[in-house]
Design a protein around this nucleic acid. Structure first.
Lengths: 118, 118
DNA sequence: GGGTAGTACTACGTCTTGTAGAGAGGTGAG
DNA sequence: CTCACCTCTCTACAAGACGTAGTACTACCC
């Protein structure tokens, strides 16, 4: 799936945070801290949609962009991808399980047991 | 932590598979399929150790390289890193739990319950 | 002492990412 | 109508990562 650059991720974060599709201009306004040229934002949005992270729909002349998948889905997919990289998935999973902190272990446990019940 | 390139990963795979520290020459011999110049292998090994993925010790004039961490540890770290990227770790974890296949869910479950017992 | 192996340093092409300008075409204000 | 402006698309460029490798120097074996 490939990772995102820093600016790309900032922009994805904005789009993930807002729940409505935004135009390039709106995204640009939300970045503030960095003083980016409007075309910079447009370029990055364009690249992101080309890479499949965003979908876009017309709104007059402008495009409105929105994430193709939720951040959770993206994160989960990254995790699975990391997992695919190992020859010994079980060992990696075990190690991962041991590494997550207590409260998160419980979340995981809960999700897993709910799965079993279904 | 940053990811690895394709050749870098092939080489890490070799070093993870063999359990002994290898010299550049030995690694090169194990790649076969690609017809790489010896210096290519050396360069990549050098970069990998510079990035902290490998440690090396002298053996005569040659260096012997070995992974700084196990593959499992690397994979688990990648997974945790992905997890850190989200604002809502719980949601991502839940989604992840639902995404792992049955047998793997059991591995996870087992590791987690063992944790609790300790 | 010449071939061989090994090192360090340097290099170059390609791809990705951050960053942005140029030019085209529509649109509202006056 | 005309001008200023918005937004788009296209193109560009610098920096860094990676794959790939040559060169030059050293040390060892026979």
């Amino acid at each position: 799936m490939k990772g995102l650059g820093e600016l790309e991720r900032s922009i994805m974060d904005i789009l993930w945070a807002e729940n409505v599709p935004l135009t390039a201009r709106e995204v640009g306004r939300l970045i503030e801290d960095r003083d980016l040229a409007p075309t910079t934002v447009m370029t990055v949005l364009d690249r992101l949609s080309r890479k499949g992270f965003l979908t876009r729909t017309r709104d007059g002349r402008a495009w409105r962009y929105q994430p193709a998948a939720s951040r959770d889905a993206y994160v989960a997919e990254l995790m699975l991808e990391a997992l695919d990289m190992t020859g010994d998935r079980d060992a990696a999973l075990t190690r991962f399980a041991r590494a997550v902190s207590g409260s998160e272990a419980e979340i995981l446990l809960k999700a897993l047991t709910e799965l079993e019940e279904e």
